[in-house]
Structures are given as C-alpha cells and as structure tokens.
Amino acid sequence: MLDLKLLDRDLVMLNLEANTQTEALEKLAARLFEVGYVKETYAKAILEREKVFPTGLPTEGYGVAIPHTDVEHVIKPAIALGILQKPVKFNLMGDLDPNNQVDVQILFMLAIKEPHMQLKLLQDIMEIIQDSELLNKMVKAEDVKTLIQATEQYVKEKGVA
C-alpha cells in the first residue's frame, strides 16, 4: 500500500504560485523545512542537484518532476506535493540537452532517508505518474482533502501500490 502517512497534509501545496523552476523548488523545500522534515541545507542541495541531474518526466497528461537529493539533508522521510498554478520548465531526466524541457505542473519533492525501505514508495509514485486520470484529479482538486481522497481512492482501487 502507498504509505499515505508520508504524504502529510501540511506538505501538500495547491495553487502554488511560481514563475520559475527555482521558485517552485524553493517554496516546496521551505515547507518541508518549516514542518521539520529536512535540514536547512536541503533547499540548496535540491536546487544544485536539479541543475546537474534534472528530474522532469513527461507523462501523457501533465509534466511531473521528482526533485530529491542526498540523505544527509533529510531528518525524516516525506513527500511534499506541489500543484502549480501554471507550469514551469524543467529539464528532462537523463537528458543533458538544455533544449529538451518539459512543462511541469506537478512536483513530488522527495525527502529520502533509507532508499531500500522506500523502494515501494518510489514505485508507487512511478505508478501514480503513469495514471493520467489520477494526475488530472490531483491538478483539478480544489482543496487538500479532495486531493488526498482521490489518492486514497486510487490506492484502494488499484491495491497499488
């Protein structure tokens, strides 16, 4: 089962205003820091890593990014979820060509502590991002409760995860 505990309501940011990738990353990282999941160094590490190893992934619907960084910046594992008001450009994962970008509207920012314990979690996220219907519901959700319900419903039906 998808560990929804990691998707803390306090870490879901809807209608996130950001004009650039950096702004979006900073706002989500700041939230993770405020709620106590990551160290102060996390935000900078996320920004730097994204430059070197971009995490944008095209999907059938909305572009998704899964920014993350090294374990030493993390206090306890979590996922921060950001739904942007309007998409911002991210570079494609595995592609160093700066011209290959994807319009990202959904960000799963990962605070990872123990990679192998969280394999399931990562796989669940990969399943979620391959489900355009769920992504659509997430983007259209008017409040955090609706979004969490959509996700829980998905988990229940698919037994995914």
């Binding site: 070197v52 190893f53 899964i66 994962m93 990962l110 990872i112 990679p115 192998h116 394999l119």
Partner: peptide, 15 residues
C-alpha cells in the same frame, strides 16, 4: 546509476 544513487536507481535496480 542515478544522480544520487538512492532514488531512481533503486527503482531501476528492482526492475
């Protein structure tokens, strides 16, 4: 292989 050696490479490893 992945950027951090802990996230996407874990998924690849399993796959």
């Amino acid at each position: 292989v992945c950027g951090t050696g802990i996230a996407t490479s874990t998924v690849v490893n399993d796959g």
